[in-house]
Design a protein around this nucleic acid. Sequence first.
RNA 1: UGGGGUGUAGCCAAGCGGUAAGGCAGCGGGUUUUGAUCCCGCCAUUCGUAGGUUCGAGUCCUGCCACCCCAGCCA
Length: 564
Amino acid sequence: MSTDNTSGNESKPLHFIQQIIKRDLNEGKVQSIATRFPPEPNGYLHIGHAKSICLNFGLAEEFGGTCNLRFDDTNPEKENQEYVDSIMEDVKWLGYQWHGEVRYASDYFDQIYEWALYLIEQGKAYVCDLSPEQAREYRGTLTTPGKNSPYRDRSIKDNLSLFEKMRAGEFEEGRCSLRAKIDMASPNMNMRDPVLYRVRKAHHHRTGDKWCIYPSYDFTHGQSDAIEKISHSICTLEFEDHRPLYDWFIENLPVPARPHQYEFARLNLSYTITSKRRLKQLVDEGHVDGWNDPRMPTVSGLRRRGVTPAAIRNFCDRIGVTRSEGMVDVGMLEYSIREDLDKNAPRAMCVLRPLKLVLTNFAEDKTELLEAAAHPNREELGSRELPFTKELYIEEEDFLEEANKKYKRLVLGKRVRLRNAYVIEADEAVKDEQGNIIEVRAHIVEDSLGKDPQDGVKPKGVIHWVSAQQHIDCEVRLYDRLFIEENPAASGVDFLNSINPENLVILRGCKAEISLATASVGDHFQFERQGYFCLDSRYSTQEMPVFNRTIGLRDSWSKISSQL
RNA sequence: UGGGGUGUAGCCAAGCGGUAAGGCAGCGGGUUUUGAUCCCGCCAUUCGUAGGUUCGAGUCCUGCCACCCCAGCCA
């Protein structure tokens, strides 16, 4: 399953980062490339991260380079091991293997500390006693320059001893910070003496209590890239303004390499939210049952939903990599999911809303074993056996006492093909006192197994079915988009108000063909005429399997029927 | 009102001075024991906008407009 489909690579034009790499390789600027995926372990990976993962790991694969997995763990207050574990699992599941061991920015804290001392000794960094509030005032605004901190001209000796005291825990959080001495009047706010180190008396998930000062993102990221000899450091557009600072550190420090930063537009998906803050809110407030709820756009949620790695990778390939930020239609993701599942998922039949069908001309105690292909266009996927009996279940919506010609299912007095079995003709609708149809009686059209009826009257449609005696009972969960608003994160509206009230419909008493009894988590199926399903990893039990609908089949009937 | 970006079809996206690729969606038709898949066809005289340069401009220049990012001791 989930073939590594690198379709479309034959003549697809190179995106701008591929062009840059190709040029750098051709011009000999680099001998080989090295990228990295640098998540902060403060949440679960989502579809937006998948784009970055596919980009970074994909580039390494494509150009014969390497890609590291590096946790950007410089903020102990928000990070923890649970996130580290889930991130590693998700990257592997997507089908990528990082180069060597997993890296952590925290592994470089000693080196980064040494470089802080270096900057102080060069007169390019100082300990500033301004409070966070004062620092904000001194920083100026977007349109007015900042003012130099009164502590900016402390002696190197004082700075060294003050920084040592910071490291030794002699200052409380917020009391002071180490800042780079750059330019308080820069139009780029990032260059107005950015903070290099701040005091955080917090336990770090990896370094424990070794440190009470932690380097900032800016003072860590580029240097970590240099330590790992990353050639192309790829990040999202919001870091573009940080590039001058990234370069400043690389140029002013005795780093072992000269990495370069490139930015691309992050993914925005319609009807979806990709903000760690809001995703966390959905989890914390119980709108979903966890980070891996099948409705979540997290990698673990998509996995539990039944989305395959190949679908995600093809999707990322399809949307491209550019510097212009737009909103990708979820329809593209859905197409990619169906594309992979249609090709690879074995077919099965499952009746979601059962209606009994009695075949009056079939022997009471007889069971006929019919063979059905696992896939209509791929013989190599084999077949399964379907027990056919006098009493069957068909879909409630597949029978009507009378209907117009557009309706191609079972109608009183008319014929329909039972998928992988006989053609039948409906004779009678049995009703209860309230007039509800509780059973349909029909007869098999002779000699119609695997061929058209001899009398030349061909059925117009095909419906699925399951034996009333030999099937498995199951629960089916029909998931739909979590939000009804195309852009739930649009400013001015509370995204919680855009939650789709019908994002989940739970169906009990569903009847699935017996071959599904051996389904296991990770398998994918197409329930014919319905959609793609997988066994739920959380709610399924031996006694009661629970199938999640990954995505429905493309449905042109719904358009026709809504126009009738 | 400072700085940094981005504007090509409903959406994503090629295009790199020589006359608008491709995909998604949509529409029309064919095949079909899934109203699925698959196949065929249609879908931008015009590239945010106004000028300019040029034999020739989506590509170069200038002005304007729209949208996004930046004032965490977050990343």
